[in-house]
Design a protein around this nucleic acid. Sequence first.
DNA 1: CCGTTGACCCTTC
DNA 2: AGAAGGGCCAACG
Length: 111
Amino acid sequence: MATFPEKIYELVRQIPKGSLATYGQLALLAGSPRAARIVGAAMYRAPAGLPCHRVIYSNGSLCCDQAFGGKAIQRQMLEEEGITFLPDGRANLKEHLWPGPEKAENPERLF
DNA sequence: CCGTTGACCCTTC
DNA sequence: AGAAGGGCCAACG
C-alpha cells in the first residue's frame, strides 16, 4: 500500500498537458475526498519533475504565493501548457478540469 | 504512541 | 459579495 503522497504523485503525473486538477479532485481520486490538505502537504514535499503547477484550488485560483515563487509564475507555466485564464484572474477550470466534467470514474466508491 | 502541522475546502456571519 | 472560522485526514517528530 503506497502512501497517500505516493498516490497523489501518480495522479498528478497522469494529468495530461493542457489539463487542470484541483486538490479536492486529487484527494477524491486518492480515496479521501476530505484529505485535500494532505494533497497540498504532499505537493509541498513533491519531488522535482512533478507537474504540481497543474494542481490548483477548487475555486480555480492558484495556490499561495510561496508556491512556485509566485502565482504569476504558475500562471505563466499554465499558459505555456495551453491553459486559458478568466478575466477574473482565475484559471479556466470549466475548460481544462481533469479528469473530466463527468468522467467521474468510480472504481468502487464506498457503499 | 500522541501531539502538532499542513501548497485545502466548505459553511456561516 | 467579501471575509472569517472551523473541520477534516494523514504524515512527521
